[in-house]
Design a protein around this nucleic acid. Structure first.
Length: 266
DNA sequence: ATGTCGGGTGTTACCCGA
C-alpha cells in the first residue's frame, strides 16, 4: 500500500497536477490539505475518472482536508473528538474549522490534518495551535489505548519544524512560529505517545524540506522547511518499507508550495 | 516577511491568509 500526504494549496487550482501524480506515483491513498473549497466545490470527477473515491471536509475557502482512495474509504469522521473550535473573540462561541478528516482505507486509519498556522507568537492563533495539538495528542492516545495494534497514520501539514535541521536558516525564523519550543514540545508529545515519524529515517536531514515559499527563489535555492509529516502508530510504523519526499512535484508549472510525502507499507 | 501564490469581492483593484 502506498500512502501519501500533500498540502495542495487549492485543489481547484491543482487538480490536474494532483491526479496526474496519483497515477504516475501509483498512490493508493492520498490525504490532502488546504483544498480551499467547500464540499460542493471539490472536483471529485477527475478523481473518480481514475478510480479514486474522495471524502472531503471544507466549509468555505479556508483550510479544507480530503482523502482520496482507490482501496476504499470507510468510517469517515469529520474532525477528531475534542478538536478545538476557533472564534478569535473571547465572548464569541467558536466554530469548528475544516482541519481534520479521518477515514479507514485498506485497514489503515488515515487522518488528514491541517494544523493551525499560529501566525505570530503573540497571536490568539498561536494559542489555538497549541491547544489543537494538545487535544489531538489526547485523543490519539485514547485510540491507541483502545487498541494497541491499530494502524493509524497521522498525516498532513503540521506547521512545525521539529528540529533546527528542518529550517533553511535558524536565524531567519528566530522569534517566528513553527520553530518555538512550545510548538516543538507539542509535536514531540505526540511522537512520545507512540506516533513515530516514519519518513525521517528514510529522508535524513539536514536540508531536507517539504515546503518552500513561492517568493525569493526559495525552491531553487533550497531554502525550505520540513513541516509535513506522517506519524505512525506502532502497528503502522513496523510496516513501513520505504518513504520519500517527492521534491519533483514542487517543480514545473503551477506547483503547490508543498511537496507530497509518500510511504510504502508492506 | 511577502519581489508569490491562492482565495474572495461592493470584481478588472484591492482585501485577506500562508
Amino acid at each position: 500500500m502506498r500512502l501519501a500526504t500533500w498540502n495542495v494549496n487549492s485543489i481547484r487550482a491543482r487538480v490536474d497536477r494532483v491526479t496526474d501524480w496519483l497515477e504516475r506515483a501509483d498512490v493508493d491513498v492520498l490525504a490532502m490539505q488546504e483544498t480551499k473549497c467547500a464540499d460542493d466545490q471539490f472536483p471529485t470527477m477527475p478523481f473518480a475518472a481514475i478510480g479514486y473515491e474522495v471524502v472531503h471536509c471544507g466549509f468555505n475557502q479556508w483550510n479544507g482536508v480530503a482523502i482520496a482512495s482507490r482501496i476504499g474509504v470507510e468510517d469517515v469522521q469529520v474532525g477528531f473528538d475534542g478538536q478545538p473550535t476557533w472564534s478569535g473573540k473571547p465572548d464569541v462561541q467558536g466554530a469548528a474549522e475544516a482541519r481534520a478528516l479521518g477515514a479507514t482505507c485498506g485497514g489503515v486509519r488515515v487522518w488528514s490534518l491541517y494544523v493551525p498556522n499560529g501566525r505570530t507568537v503573540d497571536s490568539p492563533h498561536y494559542h489555538y495551535k497549541l491547544e489543537w495539538l494538545a487535544a489531538l495528542r489526547e485523543t490519539a492516545q485514547k485510540w491507541l489505548a483502545q487498541d494497541p495494534q491499530v494502524q493509524i497514520a497521522l498525516t498532513g501539514d503540521w506547521n512545525i519544524a521539529p528540529t533546527d535541521d528542518d529550517v533553511w536558516s535558524v536565524e531567519f525564523y528566530q522569534g517566528s512560529t513553527h520553530v518555538t519550543e512550545p510548538e516543538r514540545a507539542a509535536f514531540n508529545a505526540i511522537v512520545d505517545a507512540q506516533f513515530a515519524d516514519v519518513v525521517r529515517p528514510f529522508t535524513p536531514g539536514p536540508a531536507v524540506y517539504t515546503y518552500w515559499d513561492y517568493t525569493q527563489l526559495r525552491f531553487p535555492k533550497n531554502r525550505g522547511m520540513r513541516i509535513d509529516f506522517i506519524l505512525g502508530s506502532p502497528g503502522l510504523a513496523q510496516r513501513v518499507t520505504h518513504a520519500e519526499i517527492v521534491r519533483e512535484e514542487r517543480k514545473g508549472k503551477a506547483p503547490s508550495d508543498h511537496a507530497p510525502v509518500l510511504v510504502e507499507l508492506d
